[in-house]
Design a protein around this nucleic acid. Structure first.
Lengths: 162, 162
DNA sequence: TGAATTTATGTATTTAACTACGTAGTTTTA
DNA sequence: TAAAACTACGTAGTTAAATACATAAATTCA
């Protein structure tokens, strides 16, 4: 094993990032395998719109956990591909209401069986003594109660008082 | 809970990435808290050099699991900060041997207690029913045996034969 | 032993996220 | 009811990684 994989928690952020990147790349290959013109990075937006039908830009950003500028740039690509469409909110002129286009809906129908396969393959990979998805949920739950930074400060305090 | 956090394995790559980013940011805050001029992204390189003393560019890249161009750009920053130094390998003129400078060694001494606190805080966060670090190790072990892509192809085959 | 292959490094460009900041509507409040 | 504060969206620029490509040194092999 290389050093970074044996440091333990210290290199956690790097480990998460490398694994994420690895999965994203294989995901892209899979869509290509099925001749579907779809990029993995679009998934959060598309899946959210599939579930919620109509949302504003910031609502989508919140759902997918990205900043709103990142969301805008994803939406721009998706609008260029004619997968999503948008219209002004009549009640609030600042808002843009985003929804899937007909092409977008058709794309989803094509992707559903692929998503099912992707899901099975990922379930296979994470189904271990320690389930990766559950581990993420549990870790995020802890962070929500008190962030990594706050916890470190508290540990520092305690060490200082000794 | 938002949609992406409830899709399950399908959004795994996004979840990993968001969590990684979150930890990296808090890490940066922590070094600042201690008045240490150090960026979290430097950790893999520095820690590796701390352990192995002398390595070539590609050897570092392999240890940290990054591409060699990414490693070169990290090394450039670290050389600019005078934290690492390099010399030509006399036995093989293509190679550049990288090592920590005196300033780098001193920096490590300053960081060791911080790393200890960071480690404790992260251990706290990942110590759950499903341990995040163990889950990553187990998942990567599975991927090593057969990649996400290969597994998906096999599942597709089986479904097709039904 | 010189031609082909491999290895090590470096550069240019791309990608996919971010933060910072600005503008224009909407809501609150003195 | 006008000023202040807030919210939604958008743009510009940055960051931290990647891929693709190039070059030079070392190694292999016919």
């Amino acid at each position: 094993m290389n050093i970074i994989n044996s440091v333990g928690a210290l290199a956690l952020s790097t480990r998460l990032q490398v694994l994420s990147e690895q999965l994203r790349k294989d995901g892209a290959l899979l869509y290509k395998e099925y001749d579907i013109n779809f990029e993995p990075k679009w998934f959060p937006v598309i899946y959210t719109l599939h579930q919620k039908k109509e949302l504003s830009v910031v609502e989508i950003a919140t759902e997918i956990g990205y900043s709103h500028p990142s969301t805008i740039s994803l939406l721009k690509e998706l609008e260029k591909e004619k997968i999503v469409q948008s219209k002004k909110d009549k009640a609030d002129e600042r808002k843009r209401i985003i929804s899937l286009s007909t092409k977008g809906e058709e794309l989803i129908v094509k992707m559903l069986p692929v998503w099912s396969i992707i899901n099975s393959a990922l379930e296979e990979i994470i189904d271990n003594e320690n389930n990766l998805l559950k581990a993420i949920n549990e870790a995020e739950e802890k962070i929500k109660r008190s962030s990594f930074f706050q916890r470190a400060l508290i540990i520092k305090e305690k060490a200082g008082l000794k």
